[in-house]
């Protein structure tokens, strides 16, 4: 099997070196817990509802670099593509707690669920109340309870950052984040595989002329493998599935995220955006904002995902709220 070339030192140090690099982007605001895979804000207001985000490494900037004003108070990284262990999540929880409890936002995967659940039990033993709202936006899985969390995390973490910064209580904050989760839908497509940096091996194999719709961000197989098709046809297929799922309807106002899985060009994403907007116009759906970027990546996987978030006034205000983090920053809206 071919080994993918990468700019690395000792593969065992990947996560640690990535976190140190992120901290140096915002050293006035961020600090790393010594010896741990936990980043947190230096100044977290007393009485604020805490927000901890996290998951396997290798999807940077999600989640580790989404710590900062208006976003998470702490992030916890696992090894590459593996959920963080409970003791590390607990460290992040303690770092974020300011007396009002802590909200967990992370992707809905068996490993993350188990590790965060154990951490929540450990936190409860220490008198820290927690609530959990998992990202579960990937419509590649039919059963909504079993849906994976992919690029929609970008909006869910953004809304959670707003909710935890502006709401007085944990319950109240969690409710708004749940509304975001319930109105959030994503679908991805993979064109070329990514690799596991520790071994240099590809996480899956895809034929010369094949693409996979619904591919997970860990390289889990998706739901449908197809012949490579023109961009317009692909976008039509994806938008059709997304609109039918919620379902979105005429008159809805949405935020759209076009997420680059790692190795897709901006040019391709604009070709996608062009056709997507034509289709949304035809469907009578208004796009309030579009975010384009490599937010939730899977190493050098080529492909992209589309995320639609149906907005109401509060969710729109949450997205407009200013944030400043190494992974994402925006001024007031």
């Amino acid at each position: 099997m071919t080994r993918v070339k990468k700019i690395l030192n000792d593969p065992a140090d990947i996560v640690s070196e990535v976190l140190d690099g992120i901290v140096r982007l915002a050293e006035d605001d961020l600090v790393r817990v010594a010896g741990a895979r936990v980043l947190h804000r230096r100044r977290i207001p007393e009485g604020k509802v805490g927000l901890v985000v996290g998951g396997g490494a290798g999807h940077e900037p999600m989640y580790s670099a989404f710590v900062g004003e208006g976003l998470a108070d702490a992030s916890v990284s696992g090894a590459v593509f593996a959920a963080p262990p409970p003791d590390q999540i607990l460290l992040a929880t303690e770092a974020a707690h300011r007396g009002r409890g802590v909200l967990y936002v992370y992707g809905n995967y068996a490993g993350d669920n188990m590790n965060f659940d154990v951490a929540a039990e450990l936190a409860a033993e220490r008198g820290i109340e927690t609530r959990t709202v998992r990202v579960a936006d990937d419509i590649a899985t039919a059963d909504p309870a079993e849906r994976r969390g992919i690029a929609g995390a970008f909006y869910q973490v953004k809304v959670a950052g707003f909710a935890c910064a502006t709401r007085d209580g944990l319950e109240d904050a969690a409710r708004l984040v749940e509304r975001c989760r319930d109105n959030l839908r994503s679908l991805g497509v993979a064109v070329r595989p990514g690799s596991l940096p520790e071994t240099g091996e590809l996480t899956f194999e895809l034929g010369e002329n094949e693409i996979e719709i619904g591919m997970g961000v860990h390289g889990e197989r998706g739901v449908e493998r197809r012949e490579l098709m023109p961009a317009d046809e692909l976008v039509e297929e994806m938008v059709r599935r997304l609109l039918a799922d919620l379902p979105f309807s005429r008159g809805d106002e949405i935020a759209v995220l076009i997420d680059n899985l790692g190795a897709t060009t901006w040019a391709e994403l604009m070709i996608v955006n062009r056709r997507m907007r034509q289709l949304l116009d035809e469907a009578g759906i208004r796009v309030r904002r579009t975010d384009v970027g490599a937010w939730m990546t899977s190493q050098e996987m080529a492909g992209f995902s589309l995320t639609f978030l149906r907005l109401d006034e509060e969710l729109a205000a949450a997205l407009d709220h200013p944030v400043r983090a190494p992974g994402f920053a925006q001024g007031g809206g």
Binding site: G56, G78, A79, F81, A82, A83, P84, P85, P86, D87, Q88, Y109, A110, G111, M114, N115, V118
Partner: peptide, 12 residues
């Protein structure tokens, strides 16, 4: 194992 595997495997 709990602290170092990560993922579901660490817990399991």
């Amino acid at each position: 194992l709990m602290s170092h595997c990560g993922g579901a495997a660490g817990i399991v």
